[in-house]
Design a protein around this nucleic acid. Structure first.
Lengths: 208, 208
DNA sequence: ACAAATTTAGACAGTCTTGTCTAATTCGTC
DNA sequence: GACGAATTAGACAAGACTGTCTAAATTTGT
């Protein structure tokens, strides 16, 4: 395991103050001095960890975006699949859990570092997801007013039942992820799906 | 400020490992020895803090539940008001932010303590909120299959746009809270509101 | 095989923290 | 005012951690 990986693990488990450089060195399989050679001090090491995690998470998120159902065959099933992949590959995986925890625990202590994360992370991924939903709406598959709002609500709904697990830093089971995604997507489609509205049917009735 | 309050503040800012008992004593305006007299050691003090916060947050949540719109005049406006109160009085206030942060940062280290929180907190509040929505549905104001799912999704939607602020431990502005609640409730009602469905109108058409 | 660069083990000073102890002081109550 | 309980300041030992240093060992490239 690389020094950065070991450091990520220890920083997450113990917090910045509680993290022990000796332990990081042991876990990385190197001597303490090597840690200090590569990364000047504890704080620099921490920054390197956050940057590394942000980068890898972003890569995972954009890779998963590539599987967004732009031309859905079964909209509900396709969106559920996408939500599940999003969770499994980006939010619940090692990097995602670690990054989230570091942001939560140390975010206030390093404003500039996490401002950078916000720009590079959500600042780039949210609009990208919103654009996908906008295209889906434009193609007639959804009825969306504000794609940015819809994108945030999509993720919020897909994770609605995993909140407590996330809070405690745990890893939800595959079943939990699937169930939360299923319920979330169903509600999302009840809100934004393009069933013929009652008004449209009435109009059709009137013209008949 | 009481010892518990000061400790909550310091534990949240610095984490358990980084929290300094001297600092807690100063912030509480007592001597270090008094802290040790009241709470045997750091860990006991931490437990007392979590218990106290859980209790106060629960009280606030149930107090806010009392203002749930059981007989809504304007369902959208009433639910938005409820969502805003929920956020302002329970989730974004001092106790709520502190408790959330302690759960996130130290949850894994004290499984039994936070299992207790889960039982006493979400374990009691979620079903209570679900019951309110069930009643609202039974009275004909909403079309809900599973009130537990709906309750979780209601909160997820109401907070959908505050996630990043929560992650960083920040305090969203009143405007942000109102906007997130408004968008969230609108989507919630698009999904669960009782407009006549297209199917119902068709049935009416067929019988005519 | 050799030279340069890197890594290692271990010692080390300096700092910080926890939790205890003691003796003096303050507070509440009668 | 007097007595018992609580609080305070400060010293203290024991332990932990960071970051540096040195000399030996190992790896790397040629």
């Amino acid at each position: 395991m690389s020094i950065i990986d070991a450091a990520a693990s220890v920083f997450c488990r113990e917090g910045f103050a509680g993290a022990n450089i000796d332990l990081i060195a042991v876990e990385a399989g190197v001597s303490r001095q090597t840690v200090y050679n590569h990364h000047r001090d504890k704080e620099k090491l921490f920054m390197a960890v956050v940057r590394d995690l942000t980068e890898r998470c972003n890569a995972g998120i954009f890779a998963t975006f590539a599987s967004f159902p732009d031309q859905p065959r079964d909209l509900e099933a396709d969106l559920i699949g996408f939500a599940v992949r999003m969770n499994q590959n980006c939010i619940c995986n090692r990097d995602g859990r670690f990054l989230r925890k570091l942001i939560q625990t140390e975010g206030e202590r390093y404003p500039e570092l996490f401002a950078e994360w916000q720009d590079q992370g959500p600042g780039r991924t949210w609009p990208a997801l919103a654009a996908r939903f906008a295209r889906l709406a434009h193609a007639g598959h959804l009825a969306i007013d504000d794609p940015d709002v819809a994108a945030r609500q999509f993720l919020a709904l897909a994770n609605a039942e995993l909140q407590i697990t996330f809070m405690l830093g745990g890893m939800p089971s595959e079943d939990d992820v699937l169930q939360s995604a299923t319920h979330g997507v169903r509600t999302f489609l009840r809100a934004f799906g393009k069933r013929r509205s009652a008004a449209a049917v009435e109009k059709q009735l009137a013209s008949a």
